[in-house]
Nucleic acid binder design. Structure first.
Lengths: 205, 205
DNA sequence: CGGCTTCTTGAAAAGTATCAAATATAGTGG
DNA sequence: CCACTATATTTGATACTTTTCAAGAAGCCG
């Protein structure tokens, strides 16, 4: 089930992609996509193994590297069902401004992802759920229903064992911060996903 | 000693920045810099604590977010003595191409940084040293002399305890992959910094 | 030549990964 | 629509690793 190829037939406009499908692979030629809904993981292929490299959330652009060189750098795999459409490069005047915006977004996203691998497991999973909830458009909302990636994918993002992620989510569930709705959806309350009083260890003097 | 401010007086062209100095802070206005030599860490300020967010190596641009909005997003602190100079934005035609290049570099760098927090401590430190060696210009070189950040900074990057980083470097030293030259320089042999046969666990099916 | 910072090393404690088995969920074909 | 099968998650027990704490050594700076 993980590993189906994107069906490029059909109307060239909007695509609906099932969970676990590969949108593109490193080295392939193709366009830049805009992710309309869903979550996509980007992996670097190091020989046989896949290294989780980045996460795309609704609104993000996928494969912007083809603007420079007509080859994708990563493998893009959907974590949840997604809708994507080709991105139309803005005309000459607006382009630099748009690119500058993409630069800022990328930096912020990269920082968010580093944070997913910082601190205790419980805190990492909290941050991940918050990120997914924000990504789904709900920003200051009290309660958000989100699509949940598989445990093994969340484990790759946080660099934890899948079992550890499961335990963390269970604890958050008991704390009333999350409730599962089936296996791949959850209702989260971002307000309750804030860490308990830190009490120790600033990372840096 | 950590935390000196950048002296903005003097000739507006090239700046020499001592280790531990702050180049800019979040919210400040300023220009985009090009890092000519040295290493800079970028941190996100979350209230009191600093979250390691990114690493800049020679050739990188610092603070490109001011292209969009005249405020820095991160705190930039030098890990080693650095030379920086203001970056001159290219003229209209070339700009989009340059920005596209920056996008690709950022994505690649973000992936490298995620990799610094993947796997066992020894492997993380190997990757960090390789990254620092590449950054210093030596690419296919057999042996490279590099400036070494403080242990606590390398610990922040890899999300390890400083003591663990120290032990990892000691092991690499015994294996002949690194040799210290004083406290803040080292000679590394990138060829010997490759992991031993993996033997297990691809990250993803 | 001090004083201070940073690094190194050891021993113990805490925590997560691993392994294994049971359970729940989703997917499939009749 | 249901039963069945494959996949994914949960939970428990254990082994292993890393963090933590502490003390001493080394290096850097003025």
């Amino acid at each position: 089930m993980h590993g189906e190829e994107l069906d490029t037939a059909g109307p060239p406009r909007l695509h609906t992609v099932p969970r676990g499908a590969v949108i593109y692979r490193p080295g392939e030629a193709g366009v830049t996509w805009r992710l309309l809904s869903g979550q996509v993981r980007l992996d670097r292929e190091d020989g046989e193994t896949l290294q989780f490299a980045s996460l795309a959330l609704p609104g993000d652009l996928l494969g912007s590297e083809v603007l420079l060189h007509p080859h994708y750098l990563f493998r893009a795999t959907t974590l949840t069902p997604c809708r994507i459409e080709p991105w139309l490069q803005p005309a000459g005047e607006a382009l630099p401004q748009v690119l500058a915006g993409m630069l800022s977004s990328l930096q912020r996203r990269a920082a968010d992802l580093m944070a997913l691998r910082t601190g205790e497991p419980l805190e990492r999973v909290r941050r991940l759920l918050r990120l997914l909830a924000e990504g789904d458009g709900n920003d200051g909302v009290e309660s958000a229903r989100i699509a949940l990636p598989r445990l093994s994918d969340m484990a790759d993002m946080t660099d934890l064992a899948a079992e550890t992620v499961s335990r963390a989510i269970s604890r958050l569930g008991r704390a009333g911060a999350v409730s599962r709705e089936g296996q791949r959806r959850a209702r989260v309350q971002p307000g309750r996903l804030v860490a308990a009083p830190p009490a120790h260890s600033p990372e840096h003097a």
